[in-house]
Amino acid sequence: MAESETSNIREPLPAPAKERRFSAQAIAELEEIASHYPERKAACLPALWIAQREYEGYLPPPAIQEVADRLGLSYAEVEGVATFYTMYNLRKRGRHHLEVCTCLTCAVKGAYEVVHRLEKELGIHVGQTTADGEFTLSEAECLDFCGAATVMQVGDKYFTQLTPENVKQVIDQLRNSADYTPTKLADSLVKLLIPGSSETGGGSFAPKDLVNPAGPML
């Protein structure tokens, strides 16, 4: 039955389809992380990171359901956590999520000009994704590297001292890069919690192929 657009009454949402996407490795990681805390519930944030990696960089309802089931929590509880933190994506992002800091220092140092240049360059507004699914553009609250304003986070990397002139250089490099994606970011955040992961070379720590236009990245 079609609903009137102004109606506040809607059918109850169907329960999310049961889906299991955690790989054997992901389950092992989850169990390792859960063993760090006296309560299993504390692994909720890490488990959501694992889910964000396994579900292609965002958390559709089945991902939240899977986390809830694996931790013995309710769907509502996990969804409550997932919606609280800004780094959990509830909708799909572009292959590179550009988050430009426009907080105090960055704002006075020209962050809005950088944002507007990016909007022009990509043909989208803040909050949108390009048609080819390459880039999502967002404003971010303070990324806390104010000395290097303007700062932009892409995946697990910060780009610093950006200006309207040099920001295109970053975009061009990102187009050809398989790294700095939401999935890679989630992977880093999971690996960081696993003891010994620094020895096995976990995470894409060293900047391999990207240069910061304004000089070395700190």
Binding site: T83, E113, H125, V126
Partner: peptide, 18 residues
Amino acid sequence: AVPPVPVVVNPLLTLTPA
């Protein structure tokens, strides 16, 4: 003057999409 008053195209879009 800095910072400039931001040009808000669509106020719903300026916040990060959840």
